[in-house]
Design a protein around this nucleic acid. Sequence first.
DNA 1: CTGTTAGCGCGTTCAT
DNA 2: ATGAACGCGCTAACAG
Lengths: 350, 350
Amino acid sequence: MADGVARVTGRATLEDVARAAGVSLATADRVVNRRDGVRDKTVARVEAAIARLGYRADPAAARLARNQSFRFLFILPTGANSFMTLLAEQVARTAEWLADQRAYLDIEHVDVFEPEALAAVLETVPPGYHGVATVALDHPRVRAAIDDLADRDVPVVTLVSDVPSSRRVHYVGIDNPAAGRTAATLMGRFLRGQTGTVGVIAGSLALRDHAERQFGFTQVISREYPGLVVLPAIEGRDDSERTRLAVSTMLEREKDLVGIYNVGAGNRGVAAALQQAGRRAGEIAWIAHELTAHSRRYLLNGEIDALISQNPGHEARSAGRVLLAYCSGNPMLPDQERIGIDIFLRDNLP
Amino acid sequence: MADGVARVTGRATLEDVARAAGVSLATADRVVNRRDGVRDKTVARVEAAIARLGYRADPAAARLARNQSFRFLFILPTGANSFMTLLAEQVARTAEWLADQRAYLDIEHVDVFEPEALAAVLETVPPGYHGVATVALDHPRVRAAIDDLADRDVPVVTLVSDVPSSRRVHYVGIDNPAAGRTAATLMGRFLRGQTGTVGVIAGSLALRDHAERQFGFTQVISREYPGLVVLPAIEGRDDSERTRLAVSTMLEREKDLVGIYNVGAGNRGVAAALQQAGRRAGEIAWIAHELTAHSRRYLLNGEIDALISQNPGHEARSAGRVLLAYCSGNPMLPDQERIGIDIFLRDNLP
DNA sequence: CTGTTAGCGCGTTCAT
DNA sequence: ATGAACGCGCTAACAG
């Protein structure tokens, strides 16, 4: 009959504590919120009462009384690919639950491939914002802008793409070298017993996440799958048409191509090039990133063999939670905020 | 300059709405909460004001004023394996955040392999509980007990293991046939070009989730990988020693065993049997379920090739959120509550 | 049908 | 150093 292994009462109110300690509400409140101006002896008495009653402040009441609100700025890429569109959608949803916590967010779009543009936006974040979340770019001016915000006590979280050397408060995104290694292990095992070359396509190797994925991928393939040779990465600018051209060229040149790893977007281009070259689904192992409407289709019909992915919903919510926690002085739970590297086969699609 | 694509104001209070509509607070409140006893014309006026001001009720204030709290019962397996221990830990953590929402939970342990014991607990859930979450068992008496709770308006969510035919409000867990298919695809691809038999070990085929995984696995292997033959499942009761014995026997009998899929717990037994038989890591493809301290080690040293997993932290929180949403009359967000089938290789371990 | 009013638990003046 | 009292936004009695 519910032996209360983990019974959490939480019933006691601050008033109960005050009464139990023989002090007033205000005094009890002072010690709960670690404000000074209370004699040590009194502090001890109140703390004893708190412990005895198992008091926990009611966060709803606290927020209400504080009557405080926050304003965050989310900086996302313009136009962009399917994944970024999904991210934007999820950020918009996050806005609703944030609003329930009295935190309001605005969204600003900038071109990801333009470090100067991003830096300019970061440099001119209007006063009044209590926090910024941004899909970043590893560039000196961007880094400096982030550090300036940190100086102004505006916490910055990087989203999806990090600037590790900056003073951002937190990075919400996957471990990209690990993602590349994951892709490599899948590729290596899917190609068991085959020898040949493997092509890598990136949006741009100037993008830190793309470069890191390529690095992790190459590292594992060359170390563990001697029969496979990774070709130098080609750049598709995350654009389907450019990607199609690049892949077509590669297919012509490399007669023993057995696998393709697309680190960035533009999967429609890869599919088009393969079809154009008369390659049947499954003939060349193809691993790509991010679950979108397109990649899902390619996965289901067997063109894509596996997808490495990150969950935009988790990421948007995590960014919101982290900023909110930071601004309210609450600790974040690292466990809950860790973004996993998802692997999707056609069988475990959501 | 933050062009407010998704600006959510949320600023307006009920009082603002009342004033704008020319009614009292109480009336405004009545229409906000869809209570009747208000003239249609008035309703319309208030709703117009709500829309115009973009009013959203402050949930913190509402909960405070309602001064309502809930009590939930979580029923988890006794003793049990590593995964269930992790689940229990995560449920305990969830208790803290639930307490902040004025929802308190008790934990009760029962033996999973005893439907009668589980049913007995479900049948005697004391009054005063507003909801129940249980790692269930597909058994007629359990099903009946769940339906009785539903009759008493006590929502039940099944956790990890479902009873689909019951009137549970929601199932928090993975799609087990799909998990089995996922394992099969990995197995089939990892064994590319090989022929032989594949052993399947289950805790008990009377457990719905184990049976479903085995079903999905066998289905895909036999349909798509003609070179592989799935052996009839053997039962290890989720116990390392029994599992070791069963696997040892299998290794002796099946000289052309190329893969092992362990649907349940007891991975230490599998490892012991393999070592005992002198099988080097990697010689036999081994796919298992759930990320625990043990399975993580086997994955890292190459004994286990891939892990199919579910996130106990997500599951515990999801069960809490769903129960809370149900009791407070709020809708749940299916998207956020969907539990994914995680695939772990050594490269993407958290 | 509609309005008034007294809290919910906590933070925050302003007195003492 | 400590206490009294008001208000945050909303709900729920109770009046009218």
